[in-house]
């Protein structure tokens, strides 16, 4: 389990555009760095990030990103979303060595 830090503005007004920020603990090892003995450390990165919005039995991917080794350790991604109705934001990170992490945050639109 990796630690995540997701920031969603609380109780946005209907139809406002909010910025959603997602930070996750991960080394994002490039696969290009030698270790202390000079051996290349195997690549270990998050390859994909996805955010879904679910409301009233409907679920859509609202944002997704393919990450490469040039993304910094402990990846931070911020994107936007128009808050039209309350629902659940589902975050998913997947990567090398079967890495997977899922989080949900409820969105209450006022």
């Amino acid at each position: 389990m990796a630690r995540t830090l997701i920031t969603v503005p609380p109780n946005p007004k209907k139809n406002t555009v909010i910025e959603i920020r997602a930070l996750i603990q991960h080394p994002m090892e490039t696969g290009l760095r030698p270790d202390v003995e000079g051996k290349l450390q195997p690549r270990n990165i998050i390859q994909r990030f996805e955010c879904r919005f679910s409301s009233g039995g409907k679920s859509d991917v609202i944002f997704s990103a393919e990450l490469f080794p040039a993304i910094s350790a402990n990846p931070y991604i911020a994107f936007n979303f128009r808050a039209t109705q309350s629902g659940t934001l589902g975050f998913q990170w997947t990567g090398d060595n079967g890495f997977t992490q899922a989080e949900t945050v409820s969105l209450v639109v006022v």
């Binding site: 555009v17 859509d60 609202i62 993304i71 991604i77 994107f79 979303f81």
Partner: peptide, 25 residues
């Protein structure tokens, strides 16, 4: 960098604003 790609994102109209931030090497 050793590899040309940094990030590739897919957006939808629900974003409301086309802006993405991240941190790169």
């Amino acid at each position: 960098n050793p590899q040309r790609e940094v990030i590739k994102c897919r957006l939808s109209p629900s974003a409301g604003r086309a802006q993405v931030s991240t941190r790169i090497r």
